[in-house]
Each structure stands twice: as C-alpha cells, then as structure tokens.
C-alpha cells in the first residue's frame, strides 16, 4: 500500500515537474516532434539521408550564428534589425579587400565593418538615446545601400581558396566547417550568457534596467557591448555566406533579421528582455531549417511553404507563452 503510494507519488512528482517546465522546453519538444514527423512521413523522399541532414545544417548554420548574438541583444531588452544588411555589407567589403590585399586584409575588413556599424548603433542608442528598434532599422537601409553602392550591385568573386575553405565551403573530415562555426559560436554564447558576470548583467539590464542601475551596473555600457557583439557576429555571418558562395553580394542576408529573431524567440528568449537561452536559439534556427526542408520535400509550392512556416512558428510561440 505504502509502496504503491510512493510509486504514485514519484510519478506524480515527475508529472508535475513536466507540467511546470514543458513550456520552457517547448523548443526541444517541438523540434523532436517536427523532426520525427518528417522522418516518418518523408522517409521515402530522403529526409533522413545524411546528405539532406547535412544540407539542413549548412543552410541553417549562418542563421544560427546570428541568433546566438541576437539572444544576447534581446536578453538585454534591445533589438538589432540591421543584422541581415550588415551580413550583406560585410560579404562585399570582405570580397573586395580579399582581392585587393589578401587573406588577412579581407578578414580584417569584414570584421571591421561589423565593429564600425556596431559602434555607430551603440553610440546612437546610448548617447542620443534613440531606441535600438529605430537606430537599427535605419542602419538596415544604410548598410544595404552602402553594400549596393560600393559593389555597384555586382557580385564580387572570391578566388582565395583558403578563405573559402575556412569560411563556409570546406569540410573538416565529414563535418562541414559551417557546422563547426555554429557549434563554436553557440558554445561561446552559451557560456557568456550563463556563466559570466557580463551575461548576468545583460539579463539584469533586460529584466529591470532601473533596478540594474540602482545596483551599480553601467547599463549604457552593457547595451553598447551587446550591439557591437551583434554587428560583429552579423559580419562574420556575411563572411560565411561569402565563403560558401565564393563571392560577396549585397543581397546576401536579406530578410535574415526576421528569421534570426524568430529563431531566438522560438527558442525561449523573451522579446522584451530578462530571459534568454543560446542553445534554445540554435534549436530554434534548426527547427526553422527542418521545417523549410520538410515542406520542400513534401512538394509544397513556395507560397504554401510560407503560409505553413508562419503557422507553425505562431503555434510554437503561443504554446511557449506563460499564462498568468
């Protein structure tokens, strides 16, 4: 009798633990459900084929890298809409610098582009107190326009094979280098947000900026830092695109800001700050990638894909919202 009760009790405990935490982990549950669903229904169309799986990873990796930095930005209560345009601009500056001055110059130019844009975003937001939604919205247009202008709207080829191999198109054994970039960025982002003082301060500023200030945290400095990190990471993403396609183009990264924000929010990061999970964001990006791939394999038309993808994202975010 007592034994039966205790079994019942521990089962009950497990159930109540699940009920309390499933919303936080909805991204992993959702990812598993979607993956298994496609694995079963699209078995005969090669969904589980290693090439297809690696393809998904390759297509998702760049979004995932940007989503890592976006997680920090959103956690601090800010937003960065310029990431896609910065990726495009950095792909162009990198390609131009590569042909002009070689590998080192190319890498410096790409990362420098991100650093510069990030500093401008940061200064406008923390000194002039323009909301980041507006600064980065304006920067989105400026960066895209600059990329078109300096490239004369033409694709700039990258002939440096070392660059292309390292950034995006090469493999390390069986593993695509893009996947490694994603894993490295994810690990750094996760440790930063979870295990450093900086990460803790980001969350505090996003959770309650006034209390953070009363506690002696330099809130402007934190905002500045996350905006710079976001732009530099976006520039890195643009360099990965350029490496994969072996050219710099102003169109690269177009519309990525929305996929990146969707990935982060899907993963459980709060749109208005205070709560964030880097690993969740990566799974959010992967889930969007899996959905895209599955819908294509199902033979849906592009128009139908857009509708289905939007519906699934709304469903997942709605399920993860806390009811109170």
């Amino acid at each position: 009798m007592a034994e039966a009760q205790s079994t019942h009790g521990s089962l009950g405990k497990l159930w109540s633990y699940f009920r309390q935490t499933w919303r936080q982990n909805i991204i992993y549950i959702g990812f598993a459900v979607v993956f298994v669903f496609f694995a079963v229904t699209l078995h005969d169309r090669g969904f589980l084929d290693p090439n297809n799986v690696l393809n998904i990873a390759r297509q998702t990796a760049v979004i995932a890298v940007m989503a890592v930095a976006m997680t920090l930005v959103l956690s601090s209560g800010e937003i960065d809409l310029s990431v896609g345009a910065v990726a495009g601009l950095a792909s162009v500056t990198t390609a131009m610098a590569l042909s002009a001055g070689g590998l080192g110059f190319g890498i410096l130019a790409g990362l420098g582009t991100g650093l510069f844009v990030g500093l401008v975003n940061g200064v406008l937001s923390t000194r002039l107190l323009i909301p980041t939604f507006l600064t980065t919205l304006a920067m989105m247009g400026i960066a895209r326009g600059a990329a078109m202008w300096i490239s004369d709207t033409a694709a700039i080829p990258i002939l440096n094979s070392d660059y292309a191999g390292f950034f995006g198109s090469g493999n390390l054994g069986p593993i695509p280098s893009l996947l490694l970039w994603m894993i490295v960025a994810g690990a750094i982002g996760h440790v930063t947000l979870r295990h450093t003082k900086f990460g803790r301060r980001i969350l505090a500023v996003g959770g309650n900026a006034e209390a953070a200030r009363y506690t002696g945290i330099r809130t402007a400095r934190i905002k500045m830092a996350v905006l710079v990190i976001s732009s530099v990471t976006a520039a890195l993403a643009g360099m990965l695109y350029a490496g994969r396609l072996q050219s710099g183009r102003f169109q690269l990264g177009e519309g990525d800001e929305l996929s990146v924000i969707a990935a982060a929010v899907l993963g459980g990061t709060a749109l208005f700050g205070g709560r964030g999970t880097v690993i969740g964001s990566i799974f959010g990006a992967l889930m969007i990638g899996v959905i895209n791939n599955g819908l294509i394999l199902m033979g849906l038309e592009y128009s139908q894909q857009l509708i289905a993808r939007g519906g699934i994202i709304i469903l997942a975010v709605a399920l993860s919202q806390k009811r109170s």
Binding site: T196, K197, R200, G207, N208, A211, Y214, T215
Partner: peptide, 27 residues
C-alpha cells in the same frame, strides 16, 4: 528599483557582488 522580479533569489542577491565573486570574468 530594487529587484529583477523574474529572476531568482540567488541571481538578485549576487547581482551587486558579481565583481567580487571571482577575479576572472566567469562566475
């Protein structure tokens, strides 16, 4: 002004002493 309400008791208490917790950037 005093609390980050959606954060834990531990995180709130640690917030003003983060700098003293360790010499490295890690907590």
């Amino acid at each position: 002004q005093g609390l980050v309400l959606q954060h834990s008791v531990a995180q709130n208490i640690e917030l003003p002493v983060l700098g003293k917790l360790s010499p490295s950037p890690f907590i």
